[in-house]
C-alpha cells in the first residue's frame, strides 16, 4: 500500500480536518464523535437536508455540505456506514422546525442506521423523511429495482433536495422533488483498477492489466461482466444503452449527464467518454443540459468511470441550476 497518510486509524478524521481547514466558510466538524460535518451557520426557517454514509467517496457524501446542498452529513469509516448517533446529530443540527429530509444510499447499514436515527428524531418531535437512492442499473434487474445500490446518482438527488429546501419548499415538496430526481436518474459504471481501504492495507479486488469490469459497485461489488478493455466509444455506447432504455428517452427530451471519475481516472479520459456520450445522445435528438464531468462519487483510488443520466423537467432543471456554495460543486 502506498498512500499519502499518517496513521490509517486517523484517515477519515484527518481528511475532515483538512476539509474544515481549507474551507472554514463551508465546513464545520461537530458532534460527540467528531463525525458530523455541517455548515458553520445553521439554516433558518426552512427544511433541512442531510445525508450520511461510508467515507472514501469524496465529494459524496460529506463533501456536499454547503448552502444549496446538504445542511449536515454523518461520516462513517472508509466504506463503512456511520452508526446512528452522528446521523441523529446531523438531523438535529439541520432541523429548523420544518422537518428534515435524509438522502440515503441503498446499503443495508446506512438504511438501518438512518431508520433508527429517524425514529429517535421522531421521539424528539422532529419530522423526517427518507429518500433511498437506487440508481445503479447494474446491481439488480428492473423487477428488483428496490435492491439496486445508490451510486453517483446520489449527487443529483442531493443537489435537487438541497435546492428545493433552499427555495423554501415544505418537507413534502422537497421530498417530492428529490424523489422525482431519484426516479429520473440511472447510472452505470465500469472499473479498470482496484482500490485500497486504508485499514485493510491491500487491494479490494484483483483485476488483470488488460481487463475491465462493467457494472462494478463503488465498493468493488461484482458487476455484470468482466473482460478485455474496449475503445471508449464502445464503452460509452454499452453503458448508455441501458440508461436511455430504462428512462424511456425520446427525441426532444432533455437530460443532465454526469460523467463521473471513480478516483484514479484522469479528466482527459472522462472527457473522451463525454464526447462519445454527447454524440450518441445528439444522434437520438436528446438534448444535454448542464453536463457534469469530473470526480463526484469516487471509490478511493479505483480507476474507472460511471455515466449517470437524469431526465429533466422544468423544475428539476431549475433546481439543478440553482446556486450552491461548495468547493466541489464549482458554480
Amino acid at each position: 500500500m502506498k498512500k499519502i497518510m499518517n496513521d490509517a486509524v486517523n484517515y477519515v478524521d484527518e481528511t475532515l480536518e483538512g476539509l474544515e481547514a481549507a474551507h472554514p466558510d463551508v465546513f464545520r466538524i461537530d458532534g460527540e464523535t467528531r463525525r458530523l460535518l455541517r455548515k458553520p451557520t445553521a439554516s433558518v426557517d426552512r427544511v433541512g437536508v442531510v445525508s450520511g454514509g461510508g467515507f472514501g467517496h469524496l465529494p459524496i457524501f460529506a463533501g456536499y455540505v454547503g448552502d444549496g446542498l446538504l445542511d449536515a452529513c454523518a461520516v462513517g469509516d472508509v466504506f463503512a456506514s456511520p452508526d446512528m448517533n452522528p446521523m441523529l446529530e446531523a438531523i438535529k443540527s439541520a432541523d429548523a422546525g420544518k422537518g428534515v429530509l435524509c438522502v440515503v444510499g441503498n446499503y443495508g447499514g446506512d438504511k438501518m442506521n438512518f431508520a433508527m436515527a429517524c425514529e429517535f428524531a421522531d421521539m424528539e418531535d422532529i419530522t423526517t423523511q427518507q429518500i433511498i437512492v437506487n440508481d445503479d442499473v447494474a446491481s439488480a434487474g428492473v423487477d428488483e429495482i428496490e435492491k439496486r445500490r445508490g451510486v453517483a446518482g446520489l449527487v443529483y438527488v442531493v443537489k435537487v433536495a438541497g435546492a428545493a429546501a433552499q427555495a423554501g419548499k415544505s418537507l413534502d415538496e422537497v421530498y417530492a422533488c428529490a424523489d422525482r430526481a431519484r426516479q429520473n436518474t440511472r447510472t452505470m459504471g465500469v472499473a479498470l483498477g482496484s482500490c485500497i481501504v486504508p485499514q485493510a492495507g491491500k487491494v479490494t479486488f484483483e483485476i488483470a492489466d488488460d481487463e475491465i469490469e462493467i457494472g462494478m459497485g463503488i465498493h468493488g461489488e461484482p458487476g455484470v461482466w468482466r473482460g478485455k478493455n474496449k475503445p471508449a466509444d464502445e464503452l460509452a455506447a454499452e453503458l448508455l444503452h441501458k440508461l436511455t432504455d430504462e428512462l424511456d428517452l425520446l427525441k426532444g427530451d432533455r437530460v443532465s449527464v454526469l460523467v463521473n471519475g471513480l478516483g484514479a481516472t484522469p479528466a482527459e479520459e472522462l472527457y473522451i467518454l463525454f464526447r462519445a456520450v454527447n454524440r450518441i445522445l445528439s444522434d437520438k435528438g436528446i438534448e444535454i443540459v448542464q453536463p457534469l464531468v469530473g470526480n463526484y462519487a469516487t471509490s478511493m483510488e479505483m480507476a474507472g468511470a460511471s455515466i449517470s443520466l437524469m431526465k429533466l423537467d422544468d423544475e428539476l432543471e431549475q433546481l439543478l441550476a440553482a446556486p450552491a456554495k461548495n468547493p466541489f460543486w464549482g458554480k
Binding site: 464523535t33 452508526d83 446512528m84 448517533n85 441523529l88 443495508g108 447499514g109 433508527m116
Partner: peptide, 17 residues
C-alpha cells in the same frame, strides 16, 4: 443510543433496534 455507538457488527445495530 449507547449500544449503537460501536461500529462493526450489525449485531450492535440490531440490539439498538
Amino acid at each position: 443510543k449507547a449500544m449503537t455507538k460501536v461500529s462493526g457488527s450489525s449485531f450492535g445495530t440490531l440490539m439498538g433496534i
